[in-house]
C-alpha cells in the first residue's frame, strides 16, 4: 500500500490507520482502495483477527528533503504533499539486509545500491541500512525504463505530444504507462525474455530497447555511487534482476573505473533462484544477485507489529 509520508514502518491496523490509508488514496488510486476493501472484508468475516499494513513506500521515508523535493513551486509540496515517495521498499530493505549477511558485515557499516527489476523497476541508494535516494518518484512512473513505462523523460515532451496529437489526459496517461518502455521502443514485447531470446541477433530494435533499458540503470548506479560517496556492493533482485545475465552484463560492462569487475562466467550461471557474488575476487565493489523475499519481510513485520 501507499503510505504517503504518514507511515515509515509497518503498523497494526486501527481505525486511525485506515483513515490515514484512505487519505493516501489520491497517491495510489489503483492500490489503496482494493487493499482497504480486503481489510474491511477480513474485519467482517474474522473480527478478532489482527491485521497489519505493510507499505511499499515506508522504507524510503528516511530520504532527506534534497532527495525527495521536486524543483517545482514549493506550494505543491506544502499543500498536496507532492514529493518523491519511492516504491518496492519491502524488497530493497530485504535484499540490503541479506547482502549484509552475505558480505559478513553489519548493515550499518555498508553503502549499498539495490536494483529491483520486475515488470516495474527501481534503484535505491542505501547508507547504513537506510534509504537515501530512489529512482521511482511520486508515482511508479519515474526513473528506469520499464516493461511498458517510460521512466525519466523531458517533461516538456508530454506537453508537446499532447498538443501535437491532441491527446486527452487519459490517452497520455496510457501512452506513458502502457505503450512505452521496452515495448514502446522494440514494438515486440514488454517482456525482456522475448527481447533476449537469440540476443543479439533478434533485431536492431530489440537490442536498442535492451541498451536503453540497461543504460538507464547504469546511469542511476553512477549517480548513487556519487550520492553515497562510495559503494560496497550492488545488488540485483526480482524477476529481471535475478534472471537476466544479459542486462547485468550490459550494465556492468566498462565499470572497472568505479571498481566493478564482473566475472562473466559467474554472471551466466547465477539465475533461476541462485544467490551469490558475480564479481572477480579483485573487484573492489561486489555485485550480488539476491532473490527477493517480500513475503518473509511482511511476515516478520507482522510478528513485530503484533508483539509491539
Amino acid at each position: 500500500m501507499h503510505g504517503g509520508d504518514k507511515f515509515s514502518s509497518s503498523v497494526l491496523i486501527t481505525e486511525e490507520v485506515k483513515n490515514a490509508i484512505r487519505e493516501c488514496i489520491v497517491f495510489a488510486p489503483l492500490h489503496n482502495p482494493p487493499n482497504l476493501k480486503g481489510v474491511e472484508a477480513v474485519e467482517e468475516i474474522l473480527p478478532k483477527v489482527k491485521q497489519v499494513a505493510v507499505f511499499d513506500t515506508a522504507f524510503h521515508q528516511t530520504m532527506k528533503p534534497e532527495a525527495y523535493i521536486y524543483a517545482l513551486p514549493y506550494m505543491f509540496y506544502e499543500k498536496h504533499r507532492i514529493r518523491r515517495y519511492g516504491f518496492h521498499g519491502t524488497s530493497h530493505r530485504y535484499v540490503a539486509a541479506r547482502a549484509a549477511q552475505l558480505l559478513g558485515k553489519p548493515l550499518n557499516e555498508l553503502k549499498l545500491i539495490t536494483v529491483h527489476l520486475g515488470n516495474g523497476g527501481s534503484v535505491c541508494a542505501i547508507n547504513k541500512g537506510k534509504s537515501v535516494d530512489t529512482s521511482m518518484g511520486h508515482t511508479p512512473l519515474e526513473g528506469l525504463a520499464m516493461g511498458t513505462r517510460c521512466g525519466d523523460l523531458d517533461p516538456a515532451l508530454i506537453l508537446h505530444i499532447m498538443k501535437e496529437y491532441e491527446l486527452t489526459i487519459s490517452e497520455m496517461d496510457n501512452l506513458l504507462n502502457k505503450h512505452s518502455g521496452v515495448l514502446g521502443i522494440s514494438q515486440i514485447s514488454s517482456d525482456l525474455r522475448d527481447l533476449e531470446d537469440d540476443w543479439p541477433n533478434k533485431s536492431d530494435r530489440a537490442n536498442l530497447a535492451l541498451d536503453v533499458y540497461s543504460h538507464r540503470i547504469k546511469k542511476y548506479i553512477g549517480a548513487y555511487i556519487a550520492v553515497l560517496n562510495g559503494c560496497d556492493a550492488i545488488i540485483w533482485t526480482a524477476g529481471v534482476g535475478e534472471n537476466s545475465p544479459i542486462v547485468r552484463s550490459i550494465v556492468h560492462k566498462e565499470m572497472d573505473w568505479l571498481g566493478v569487475k564482473l566475472d562473466l562466467e559467474k554472471n551466466e550461471v547465477t539465475w533461476r533462484g541462485a544467490e551469490g557474488d558475480i564479481t572477480t575476487p579483485d573487484s573492489k565493489v561486489k555485485v550480488l544477485v539476491i532473490p527477493t523475499n517480500e513475503e518473509l519481510v511482511i511476515a516478520q513485520d507482522t510478528i513485530e507489529s503484533i508483539n509491539r
Binding site: Y165, L167, S170, E171, N174, L175, K178, H179
Partner: peptide, 9 residues
C-alpha cells in the same frame, strides 16, 4: 483508433 492514439492496448 483508440489503440493508434495510445488510449488503449
Amino acid at each position: 483508433s483508440e489503440i493508434a492514439r495510445w488510449g488503449l492496448t
